[in-house]
């Protein structure tokens, strides 16, 4: 059963500095993923969970088990850093930062998620500016 259908990034070709994905992630975000009890609080409260291929707790599990395909998960790009999971996690794990670390692993390989030229002109006129800055910060390294 493969939950992740995207193959945008060749995860096996990504050279991870620390070898294990979990070490790389922990290094970037400073969170200890092994403190997770897999209780599902983060996922139950996530506003985007319905559109995700992996729920946030599954993302943590994948990283722990060194399943690198997690880097192709939609989830990490759907996370809008609303911090609800981080606020409620009984183990005080900042899942928001874990998601960012996973994005950064890709972005720092100069792989962009968003192609700026794809955004239609009329949208550029009406959407609040801060949305664009935010999007670029999240999706274009």
């Amino acid at each position: 059963m493969n939950k992740i259908s995207d193959e945008n990034v060749d995860v096996n070709a990504l050279k991870l500095k620390k070898g294990d994905l979990v070490k790389e992630v922990e290094d970037l975000c400073g969170e200890n993923l092994f403190g997770c009890y897999q209780c599902g609080t983060c996922s139950a409260g996530c506003p985007f969970v319905e559109d995700m291929d992996l729920s946030p707790d599954e993302v943590i599990r994948y990283v722990i088990l060194d399943k690198k395909e997690v880097l192709n998960s939609k989830t990490i790009w759907l996370c809008a850093a609303c911090y609800t999971c981080a606020e409620r996690c009984p183990r005080d794990i900042n899942i928001t930062k874990i998601m960012e670390a996973l994005r950064q692993i890709i972005l720092r390989k100069n792989i962009d998620r968003t192609n700026l030229t794809d955004i239609p002109m009329e949208e550029k006129g009406s959407i609040p500016q801060l949305a664009f800055v935010c999007l670029f910060r999240k999706n274009v390294g």
Binding site: P47, F48, D51, L78, A80, A81, C82, T84, T114, I119, E123, I127, A131, F132, C134, L135, K138
Partner: peptide, 20 residues
Amino acid sequence: KVECCGSYHTVEDKNLVSNR
């Protein structure tokens, strides 16, 4: 009242935000 509105996804995924 404390749940995310969809934030910057409004640029690339209008329907997702409309759903929210």
